[in-house]
Design a protein around this nucleic acid. Structure first.
Length: 552
RNA sequence: CUGCCCGUAGCUCAAUCGGAUAGAGCACCAGCCUUCUAAGCUGGGGGUUACAGGUUCGAUUCCUGUCGGGCAGGCCA
């Protein structure tokens, strides 16, 4: 419809000037229904070129526009906006299209089956997942769903930092517990992990339990002096726990990549050798440095420490080069904002490899920090993790749907306050239930009607007249555009906003009109409209990984 | 000190990548259930978009500066 309108306008404008390309014609969806279903500011833009008042130009365009069945009113408003109002014929077309596409309504093929990878959560296996990981999971998973809905071939990936100092730290913390050295003891590792989960791991380790991890059973030896065994068991234990939490959060991954594997199969070595060969490194103070300043960083970074270990970003570069060789034309990394300094290093490292990787590759979505509130006060600790609120706490207390909703409902680059009391309340305070309730209400009406809902469609004779109907239809027609934009901007919160608006219009309509009326044509038309609305709400909720209940 | 993000109603947040009267929800006030789910609807009050300049037909949006909050910056994950 937008394209059609652009064509119409361009044909007229061509005759007025040749200084405007078709891509400069922007069709907006006005916020207010009084401003129509579509609008354009093209007359305002042309007024500069043609040196005429915008309203005059708008009138000129209006008079030249050919008759069309799509609109029954076009008017000039405000400073010179052209507003278009959809005809009953268009209303039918929109609703019937939803009926035809059902679960696919709103999807598109923009991705052309190109390969894209979304990496998210990627928590270190050193403790339970916290709220921040939850935000990453909610946003990252929704982004992956959006891309899939937009015709991309999506791979969801989780990266485990299972090598490096923090893992050694984990091992020493567990070992201390095994030796009955507690966190408040002098001999407990100073930077050790102090949550109660460490004691649980130690207990299971000593009991020689076995843990399932990545399809394998990992058996604890129970030997306090076998540090390798402790390390392997601890990682397996925590990975298993994280997997369980993510499953409860309706979040799945296609591939798990281990940092340790990048060392094992020499991908790290390859990257280091290549960077040396390309002349982007130098030695200083017994360490190997990468000239990241060549690629826009504000200072050079150490790659290999004087003790021979690599700094953390080196395997990161190797990992991303691996992604590149796997053929992803786009890679989206969803991370907490505390990682933002890695962006320039990873990109610099990739540039240094001289493999024609685009400078803006990979892309990053960074989410800001979260404050959890209860009873008006900040919650900082959990029983299990000690120093932070775990994702499991939230899921257990407020449920998966509400947790996902609240963590995805905000722009990722603003800090968010997670109000446990609000998320928990099963009342009108809670937008999740507000949306789900709209879905369930429609289900109730359709059930009472009892007819064959898949045969519903709009008969050409029927006209939707009420404001509530027009608003709802307009909203449904916008869904495909919202999907496109939310995908392009990597912003799933636009879907939550859309759903809230859509649900509001449905509820208004519900109170405004009765659906199961005597007149057959009216009844079927209205039922078709609300069934279409139900499809849209369901599709939107699915993009967020939130359930669409039939009864509440 | 330097870089990145943010600052919008009492609170939590939007605002279609420069558009029309800055919108929702919560809270507050007044109404609506013998009729398809009241977890709902209708109406009302509430704003110098942190502040000061600039760019133009037009700025919450772009630029500069100031103030305030968060994050990051070390041979560190």
């Amino acid at each position: 419809m937008k394209d059609h309108l652009t064509d119409l306008l361009f044909n007229v404008i061509k005759q007025l000037t040749d200084k405007l390309s078709q891509s400069q014609i922007i069709i907006d969806r006005p916020k207010l229904i009084e401003h129509g279903d579509f609008s354009t500011n093209i007359a305002l833009i042309l007024s500069k070129i043609l040196k005429k008042p915008p309203r005059d130009i708008a009138e000129l365009i209006l008079n030249q526009l050919p008759e069309t069945t799509h609109f029954n009113k076009i008017e000039i408003a405000g400073a010179g906006f052209l507003n278009f109002f959809l005809s009953p014929f268009s209303h039918q077309t929109i609703i019937n299209q939803v009926m035809k596409e059902k679960d696919n309504y709103g999807s598109n093929k923009n991705g052309q089956n190109h390969k894209i990878q979304v990496e998210f959560v990627s928590a270190n296996p050193t403790g339970p997942l916290h709220v921040g990981h939850g935000r990453g999971a909610a946003i990252g998973d929704s982004i992956a769903r959006l891309f899939k809905f937009s015709g991309w071939e999506v791979t969801r990936e989780f990266y485990y930092n299972d090598a490096g100092a923090q893992i050694d730290n984990l091992m020493r913390s567990v070992k201390s517990h095994c030796l009955n050295i507690k966190p408040n003891d002098k001999n407990f590792p100073e930077d050790g992990y102090r949550g109660s989960y460490i004691a649980d791991i130690a207990k299971d380790y000593l009991a020689k339990k076995s843990i399932k991890c990545a399809g394998q059973n990992i058996q604890a030896s129970g030997d306090v002096n076998n540090e390798d065994s402790i390390r392997i068991f601890s990682i397996a234990y925590l990975r298993n726990e994280q997997d369980t939490d993510l499953e409860a959060f309706q979040t799945t991954f296609d591939i798990y990549t281990l940092e340790s594997d990048l060392y094992k199969n020499h991908k790290v070595d390859f990257v280091v050798e290549t960077l040396i060969k390309e002349g982007h490194t130098y030695e200083k103070d017994g360490a190997l440095w990468l000239k990241t300043t060549k690629f826009g960083d504000d200072k050079d970074r150490v790659m290999k420490k004087s003790d021979g270990d690599f700094t953390y970003f080196v395997p990161d570069v190797a990992y991303h080069f691996d992604k590149w060789t796997r053929g992803f034309i786009r890679v989206i990394n969803e991370q907490g904002a505390d990682h933002h300094s890695t962006i320039s290093r990873v990109r610099a490292g990739l540039q240094g490899l001289n493999k024609n990787i685009p400078s803006g590759w990979p892309e990053y979505v960074l989410h800001q920090m979260i404050t959890v509130m209860r009873n008006g006060a900040e919650v900082k600790i959990s029983k299990r993790a000690g120093s932070y609120v775990t994702l499991k706490d939230l899921i257990d207390e407020v449920g998966c749907d509400a947790t996902r909703y609240f963590l995805a409902a905000r722009r990722s680059d603003s800090q968010l306050i997670f109000d446990i009391d609000l998320a928990k309340s099963q009342s009108n305070d809670n937008p999740v239930y507000y949306i789900q309730y709209a879905h369930a209400r429609i289900e109730g009406v359709l059930n009472q009607w009892g007819g064959e809902r898949n045969k519903l469609s709009i008969d050409s004779i029927y006209n939707f007249r009420s404001l509530a109907e027009k608003k709802l239809i307009k909203r449904l027609s916008e869904f495909p555009e919202v999907v496109v934009q939310a995908t392009e901007e990597l912003a799933p919160h636009q879907i939550t906003n859309f759903l809230k608006d859509c649900a509001a219009e449905l509820h208004s309509y519900y109170n405004d009109s009765k659906f199961l009326v005597d007149d057959e044509l009216t009844k079927l038309s209205r039922l078709t409209l609300i069934y279409a609305a139900q499809c849209v709400i369901k599709n939107g909720l699915r993009l967020l990984g939130i359930s669409a209940p039939k009864k509440m």
